[in-house]
Design a protein around this nucleic acid. Structure first.
Length: 493
RNA sequence: GGUCCCAUCGUCUAGUGGCCUAGGACGUCGGCCUCUCACGCCGAAAACAGGGGUUCGAGUCCCCUUGGGACCGCCA
């Protein structure tokens, strides 16, 4: 095993969303690529917003995507004492100080600064408080936070970002940030560093929205006398209006769960997501798990943010694209190319939910089931389509598409008599296979003087309810003699 | 307002000074196949944000402008 150790540290304040999943994917891939370790750590120091359900939701999402972690989940809360100790140490070493400014005061000052068009950072007024002054205020019971004392140095602090290159910032422009709340609980900036040190994290791959944190955390590493890990800041994923994607403003469309429920294959989602801001030099787009791990490299991560072109206006309207067309197309690709017996598991799961599942599909009718989903899958985009557009193959209560009815039946009134006639002809058949059916149907058309296309499309509409579908004789075989003749005979209604 | 990041077709992207007449994928449009649709195949429309440099030569390097984004919490 190499010495690569990475982590995915979600905060359990909601479901796993696309952005988080993407970060997890990149970290996971990096670990797998280098034979390293992928640690899952739940950052639940914000106890007010953290919930048990979201922890479960996140784990569930990661498992579904197939992103297996090697260690954890660890819970940040469990290391509370370590975090406190670190803060104490910084305080004792004079690298941090107590700040007695109240939240209200700070808010007011920020407002004022904004108003006066100044920088709105903390001005460091408690930094120079004398020992006596500090003691006096403590005695009075004034609450305080602990702030990190940014070194008073000339020049810049910086690091070499693996995707962005050299990043630097003037010491003078960094404000003294809070590391412990007035209620005594340490904050993310500190906890995160302490945990990363303890876990031996070697590479931190996270969103560009963390860049300001990185600068401050670098200071923390220095103060704690530890070598910082390598940083790589990934581009953000944006909504179609180019806003950062968030659970709060975008809702379920950006959750992993949403894609699961809408019939995505987990690997298709991973494959799509990894393409958002990453590429190989040969521009390949479809990867198996092994291929992706092999191909992955941080060098392929782009600097620019990318748009996840989901459909934000989809208000339950049935649209052709309920999410990014490319995501759908990748999903469709896997749907029609993956081994049928793998697909079987997904369809089964969905059919159980849709009440279409029958026990015999796993034993005596399994072969039929497999060949049927194989037959119809090439025009589907999601797992849901099997129950939606393929219902007629598995049940007798299926809807007839309005358009199909109009175009293929009503337009040709003679079908009303012809199809029941054909039904009788078919009823007399002893065998039931593609070649025979084709001969019979075509002969029937010739005899009745109708174009085969009219009859064939009529049959399709009647037996599948659909405007489109596989070759008709395949359909007839898949649906079976009994059901076909029954459906054709019933046209009278 | 301050700081930082970014900038090639509608979207994801290739491109690291000459191989660019800017390539691919998705989507769109047209065609082939055909009983329909899909698949597959063929084809079309579609981009280097603008301006200055540097250079024999710039999508590629530098500067400015513009545009977009992120961050500026006792959230993570």
């Amino acid at each position: 095993m190499s010495d690569v150790v990475v982590r995915f540290p979600p905060s359990p304040t909601g479901y796993l969303h696309i952005g988080g999943a993407r970060t997890a994917i990149f970290n996971w891939l990096f670990a797998r690529k280098h034979g390293g370790k992928f640690i899952l750590r739940i950052e639940n120091t914000d106890t007010e917003r953290s919930t048990r359900e979201s922890v479960e939701g996140i784990l569930d999402g990661l498992r579904w995507l197939g992103l297996h972690w090697d260690e954890g989940p660890y819970f940040q809360n469990d290391f509370h004492k370590e975090h406190i100790r670190a803060a104490q140490m910084l305080l004792e070493m004079g690298l941090a100080y107590k700040c007695f400014c109240s939240k209200e005061e700070l808010d007011k000052r920020r407002q004022q600064a904004l108003h006066e068009k100044r920088s709105i950072g903390y001005d460091g007024r408690c930094r120079g408080l004398s020992q006596d002054e500090v003691k006096k205020r403590e005695k009075k019971g004034i609450p305080y936070v602990i702030r990190f004392k940014v070194p008073e140095r000339e020049g810049k602090i910086g690091y070499d970002d693996k995707v962005l290159g050299r990043i630097e910032k003037d010491y003078s422009e960094i404000e003294d940030f809070v590391i412990v709340r007035s209620n005594g609980t340490p904050l993310y900036l500190l906890c995160n560093v302490v945990d990363d040190i303890r876990d031996g994290i070697t590479h931190i791959i996270r969103g560009q929205d963390h860049m300001a944190n990185t600068i401050r955390q670098l200071l923390l590493y220095e103060a704690l006398k530890k070598t910082p890990p390598v940083f790589a800041h990934m581009p953000l994923t944006l909504d179609p209006r180019k806003r950062k994607i968030s659970k709060r403003t975008h809702g379920e469309v950006v959750s992993v769960q949403f894609y699961r429920e809408r019939g995505f294959l987990p690997w298709a989602l991973v494959n799509f997501l990894v393409l958002l801001g990453w590429h190989t030099s040969d521009n390949r787009e479809i990867f198996s798990k092994e291929e992706l791990i092999e191909a992955f490299s941080i060098e392929g991560i782009s600097k620019a943010n990318s748009v996840f072109n989901f459909n934000p206006d989809d208000k339950e309207k049935i649209k052709k694209f309920f999410t990014d067309p490319k995501a759908l197309s990748i999903n469709a690709h896997y749907l029609r190319t993956m081994p049928v017996d793998e697909l079987y598991e997904y369809v089964k799961e969905d059919f159980i939910k849709s009440n279409l599942w029958r026990k015999e599909y796993e034993d005596e009718k399994k072969e039929w089931f497999l060949s049927t989903i194989d037959l119809i899958r090439s025009r589907f985009h999601t797992i849901k389509d099997f129950a939606r557009y393929g219902r007629a193959y598995f049940a007798d209560d299926f809807p007839i598409d309005e358009k199909a009815l109009k175009k293929n039946i009503l337009k040709h009134p003679q079908l009303k008599a012809l199809l029941p006639m054909l039904s009788d002809v078919l009823n007399g058949l002893e065998t039931w296979n593609i070649e025979l059916l084709e001969d019979i149907v075509r002969a029937f058309c010739e005899k009745e003087g109708v174009k085969p296309g009219i009859v064939i499309n009529g049959i399709r509409t009647v037996i599948t309810g659909q405007l489109k579908g596989p070759g008709i004789f395949d359909c007839m075989v898949a649906i079976g003699k009994d059901r076909v003749i029954k459906r054709l005979a019933h046209l009278a209604k």
